[in-house]
Nucleic acid binder design. Structure first.
Length: 614
RNA sequence: GGUCCGGUAGUUCAGUUUGGUUAGAACGCCUGCCUGUCACGCAGGAGGUCGCGAGUUCGAGUCUCGUCCGGACCGCCA
């Protein structure tokens, strides 16, 4: 393709997009612009599917109609950029394209202008060819601009846009003020690793990118903003997962004079608005609520997936005094025997169960060994993995009765220290549900929302030998647990909550401490002394002394919400330019080295690996 | 930091179990034919650093070690 073949675009503006034309436009002269999605050259007639963001329209080139234009069309290839002037006409056989909105018509080309060519593609972009791409993610990320032309990713971007708009419309309507908080802020010792930004002006000092705008939004409440929200980038320098990126987007919300009920109600309204706008679905409000304790005991997780049953049962009552040493010692030591029913699992083979025990329970969950009771579907007698001489059948029967298992079912059981054993069984529950095909990620629901409430305020870290804030250090204890803060910190419940959808945590928040004395006690429990508190959070403690109102809020993971709405299996499919698992971006190839003088300006000296004694 | 899976033509994969002649297929690309296709069709052709580096061997895509890259998970992530 020589340069001379490019002409000035004398067609002027497009009259329609590639998704706009219908039967009613037949007879009109139109100008369309877009990419060659595919081309079918029949020797004489040439058909080109012209694609833009809005859709695809079939263009016909006919040598009898316009020989020069048809000749040009022979050289068209995938992803060439065209302007086409032509006449809309009825399509002879539209039936084959029932799903295509423009199927009723086609455009007979009068004139063609080649706006740009394309080299052969590293992978197929065509809407017809690759609704689900087979290209490796590596390649897709390197050529992200091509990947984003694909229907699937393009739709994710457009859906994400609609989520932004729904969020803004909702909060604006509820008197929330959108405020931008600084991206260059201050490192905080708790929580995730910070991304740091060196200061040129202040040698040896660093900004940190926000893990969330937490302290700023609290200050805004003290400042009397009353209701705040922000769609904001947050940064955490921790290892990646399919649902975890180092930079991600939060819908950040804070309200003055908030109670948990008020936060829940508002959050539900916002989520309902998203689902209404994006999916046309009316969510059932209010969402069910469950305490953290109940979630752990019933689902072995602080983010229960309610799309299926398989609830956990504490079988301690059934096995108390059963004589089976494993159970007896666990129960005596305050642990738990936990089981759940696998419906229709009564005929599961021994080999499969051994594999489950070895590969999943022991290797992956670190569990102490799986016990099973099978009730064969042919009505034959109970099969226990523990011999009746060791674990008398009467106790097993009692346990089976408690779980509600029927003939044809299986009960899986593990014993161990609580609450760890509950969480291991919770993981096993998810594993079995996937195995049994009970959960399917789908963009069409079902949508099982849930509030998990009454989180512990603190959790004990064995390695460090001290308590850490489970949510963050500004979370308010529950009033009735206040006196335990000094005596039994682990037992204090927080006014903290998560909102869970289909087993994913999509948001979390708390009612905050607004009193500097309570905040001081909290720092005390965390082992942060007066001096350190003043250094790290002095600004907040100061602010609390000037009429700080009670306040609270919540932050939602926007990327995860979009992931669930689109049915995407990875966060990378709902972020336009995501990082790989090793936190790199293959297209621009970041991170990268910088010039020596840049480092000098920043007062930074690099150390080699050998110097790095750590 | 750890466990596991993968890396072969532009792309997606087969071939690795059991080392052995010229490393195959499909799609894409190129050439020719084809006037109602819509994953158009037909015929022919070009296209390979078997991720990289060592090693074992007469001989390595295939075996061993190391390393890089991608992915899933554990640790980590209030």
């Amino acid at each position: 393709m020589s340069v001379s073949q490019f002409k000035v675009d004398s067609h002027g503006r497009r009259t329609h997009t590639c998704g706009a034309l219908r039967a009613e436009h037949v007879g009109q002269t139109v100008v369309l612009k877009g990419w060659v999605d595919s081309r079918r050259d029949l020797g004489g007639l040439i058909f080109v599917d012209l694609r833009d963001r809005y859709g695809i329209t079939q263009i016909v080139f006919n040598p009898e109609h316009n020989a020069e234009t048809a000749k040009m069309a022979e050289s068209l290839r995938f992803e060439f950029v065209l302007s086409v002037k032509g006449t809309v006409r009825e399509r002879e056989v539209a039936a084959k394209h029932a799903g295509m909105p423009t199927a009723a018509i086609e455009v007979m080309a009068d004139d063609l202008i080649l706006l740009n060519t394309s080299e052969p593609l590293p992978f197929m972009v065509s809407a017809a060819e690759s609704r689900e791409t087979t290209a490796s993610e590596d390649l897709r990320l390197k050529y992200r601009y091509l990947d984003l032309r694909r229907q699937e990713l393009k739709n994710n971007v457009l859906l994400r846009h609609r989520v932004y708009q729904a969020v803004r419309r909702f909060y604006d309507g509820e008197d929330f003020v959108e405020v931008e908080t600084p991206v260059l802020m201050k490192s905080t010792p708790e929580g995730a690793r910070d991304y740091l930004v060196p200061s040129r002006v202040h040698a040896g000092k660093f900004f940190a990118l926000p893990q969330s705008p937490q302290t700023y939004k609290q200050i805004l409440m003290v400042a009397g903003m009353d209701r705040y929200f922000q769609i904001v980038k947050c940064f955490r320098d921790e290892d990646l997962r399919a649902d975890r990126q180092p930079e991600f987007t939060q819908i950040d919300v804070e309200m003055t004079f908030a109670t948990e009920d008020l936060v829940f109600e508002t959050a539900e309204g916002m989520l309902a608005q998203i689902w209404k706008d994006v999916k046309g679905v009316d969510l059932e409000l209010p969402f069910p609520r469950m305490t953290y304790d109940a979630a752990i005991r019933t689902y072995g997780s602080d983010k229960p997936d309610l799309r299926f049953g398989m609830e956990l049962h504490d079988l301690n009552p059934a096995f108390k005094g059963c004589g089976f040493r494993v159970f007896d010692s666990v129960i005596d030591e305050g642990g738990a025997v936990v089981g759940f029913v696998v419906k229709g699992g009564g005929d599961t083979g021994r080999g499969k169960l051994d594999k489950l025990d070895k590969d999943i329970v022991r290797k992956k969950l670190g569990g102490g060994g799986l016990i099973h009771f099978r009730l064969p579907s042919d009505g034959s007698e109970l099969q226990s993995s523990v011999k009746a001489e060791v674990l008398p059948t009467e106790f097993v029967q009692k346990a089976i009765e408690q779980t509600g298992a029927e003939q044809g079912d299986m009960v899986l059981v593990m014993a161990g220290a609580a609450p760890k054993v509950f969480m291991q069984m919770g993981d096993l529950r998810l594993h079995m549900a996937r195995e049994e095909g009970l959960v399917e990620e789908s963009a069409d629901g079902p949508w099982k929302f849930l509030w998990v409430t009454d989180f512990p305020l603190l959790e004990y870290d064995e390695d460090e030998g001290r308590f850490f804030a489970m949510h963050h250090p500004f979370t308010s204890p529950q009033a009735e647990d206040m006196d335990k803060l000094g005596t039994d910190p682990g037992a204090v419940r927080a006014q903290a909550y998560d909102v869970v959808l289909n087993g994913s945590e999509i948001g979390g928040g708390s009612i905050r401490i607004h009193n500097s004395e309570v905040q001081r006690q909290m720092f005390d429990a965390l082992g942060i002394d007066e001096e350190e508190a003043q250094m790290r959070f002095g600004f907040l403690l100061d602010a609390f002394r000037y009429g700080a109102p009670p306040h609270g809020g919540i932050a939602f993971g926007l990327d995860r919400i979009v992931m669930l709405l689109t049915g995407a299996s990875s966060l990378r499919d709902v972020i336009v330019f995501p990082k790989t698992q090793s936190a790199q971006e293959p297209m621009v190839q970041s991170p990268d080295v910088v010039d020596a003088h840049q480092l000098r300006d920043l007062h930074i000296q690099l150390i080699t690996k050998e110097d790095d004694a750590d």
